[in-house]
Amino acid sequence: MTKRQKRLFLLMCVLLGAFAVSPVSYGMHIMEGYLPVTMSVCWFAVCIPFWVLGFNSIKKNVEAHGKSISILAISGAFIFVLSSLKIPSVTGSCSHMTGTGLAAILFGPTAVSILGVIVLLFQAILLAHGGLTTLGANTFSMAIAGPIVSWLIYKGLDKAGVKKGVSVFFAAAIGDLFTYCVTAFQLAIAYPSQDGGVAASLVKFLGVFAPTQVPLAVVEGLLTSAIILGLESYASSELTDIGFLNGSQKA
């Protein structure tokens, strides 16, 4: 290795380190063109059953109460706006919420699979975050896997009698972390490392995205629980519209 090569290589590693610790917002959207075609198709196929389930539940809802289409639409727009806002952070850099935990707790995992794919589509079209070929993979991690985990944790802790603020915090934070693990896994199976295979690659991706995603998950948990508590204290009549306080989680 010549001196110049060594310097370049060092520069590359420093660059990686610098970008990895700068909390980047939409870091967990796999960008357009980043997955091979077979992988993209596979992730779309994985999503299809969830989409069918979600679509049918929304359809039934809209047929029963016509008004719910307007409520669903405004909820989707709300998730989009929430995820495009800069959230407060200690360092003053800009990062964003994923909103998956909040959406799952408010609207239930079935509706979120459809709302989520629309939000991700608009994020790709309007904000250039994520992409069309990677839509399947992104939907699976952010609108299916994350919300389901959040919702299960929320329900479980709620049944166990944990205080609402606490259970929402854990649901949102762990849902966020799970989303990040799924994305790292998606990247790892698309690009296994040469000598360690998928496992080594997974460790690399988890490690590189951890400095951003772990603090972000904590902040997201704090914000989500504050939002839910705020809603509960002065919006119970609106919340019955989306079936939050009834215990029926269907939007």
Binding site: G66, K67, I69, S70, I71, A73, I74, S75, A77, F78, V81, L82, L85, I87, P88, L106, L222, L223, A226, I227, I228, G230, L231, Y234, A235, E238, D241, I242
Partner: peptide, 20 residues
């Protein structure tokens, strides 16, 4: 931030009713 967000949802839901 969280106050704004929860209030935003309330205001939006009211609007959703009016729009419908």
């Amino acid at each position: 931030f969280s106050g704004t967000a929860s209030n935003l949802l309330v205001v939006s839901l009211k609007k959703a009713n009016a729009y419908y």
